[in-house]
Design a protein around this nucleic acid. Structure first.
Length: 250
DNA sequence: AATAGCTGCAACCGCGTAGTT
DNA sequence: GAACTACGCGGTTGCAGCTAT
């Protein structure tokens, strides 16, 4: 279809693997300031050593304000099962019916929990089921009809099996390093509202030293953004200084 | 206590497609 | 219409944490 395509970024020059709290902060901070109209150039301007694709994924699956963390409710699981019967592996389509859930998360839940259920397994043999992606014309009316998806906002109301590792945000040590978890959600919800941005963060000592010592923000490769980023950094720093971690003690 | 096996999740990879030149 | 870019999607993988032995 296409004649050779350059990889989206030079693999040797970008960082890969899990995101650090500092990177998350940079990304949130940058998007809050400048938005994300161009993922490809975002890393360069934000000073992140990641490819745009990776930034996009991180934002969509984890940092976006409206991402609902926590285990899936029984209702949500039920909805996923129904939607999967209609749409097959169209995860983004399914995700669009589940506010706050990402396609990646739904896909994971499907593969780890839902598809193992006996009821699901039997229905999976239906013509429009899993892996028969070519459902062709999806019956939207039917699909939408079965989805009066009122998902609970209480992510702690979990019915899902839980498994051995429920490292949702509330348990994620990575995030816990920097943010109080509830506060983390709150921040993220403000990211799309620049004027309202408050960052109720519980700041880990490591993060303090990061902010105080490193020039990580200034190390941004984009000179044209540098001045603005510095003031952005100051904003964030000031906020942190005025909101000592103790204020979020449990 | 050590470790092998299993599970669940975050992140990566490659392809399809829409948009632009 | 061809060539190219960038984005979005779905499949897959790697790894950390948990459990069983």
């Amino acid at each position: 279809m296409r004649k050779g395509r350059a990889h989206c970024c030079d693999k040797t020059k970008v960082k890969r693997g899990p995101w650090s709290p500092e990177e998350d902060l940079k990304l949130i901070s940058f998007i809050q300031k400048f938005g994300h109209e161009n993922w490809r150039s975002l890393p360069k301007h934000s000073g992140l050593l990641r490819c745009g694709k990776s930034c996009r994924l991180r934002w969509i699956n984890y940092l976006r304000p409206d991402v609902k963390r926590g285990n899936f409710t029984a209702e949500e699981e039920e909805t996923i099962i129904k939607l999967h019967q209609n749409y097959g592996n169209k995860w983004s389509r399914i995700a669009s019916q589940l506010p706050g859930r990402t396609d990646n998360e739904i896909k994971n839940v499907w593969h780890t929990h839902l598809k193992k259920r006996p009821a699901v397994q039997s229905s999976a043999t239906s013509p429009c089921s899993s892996d028969s992606v070519s459902c062709g014309k999806e019956d939207n009316s039917q699909a939408e009809g079965c989805l009066n998806t009122k998902t609970s906002q209480d992510s702690t109301t979990s019915v899902s099996s839980g498994g051995s590792k429920n490292l949702k945000q509330e348990d994620d040590p990575k995030i816990g390093l920097v943010f109080g978890y509830r506060e983390f959600n709150d921040i993220i919800q403000e990211v799309d509202k620049p004027d309202l941005l408050e960052i109720p963060l519980d700041l880990d000592p490591d993060m303090w030293s990061f902010l105080d010592s490193s020039n990580s923000f200034q190390q941004s490769g984009a000179n044209e953004f540098r001045a603005e980023e510095e003031s952005d950094e100051d904003e964030v720093k000031n906020w942190f200084k005025n909101h000592p971690p103790a204020s979020f003690a449990e």
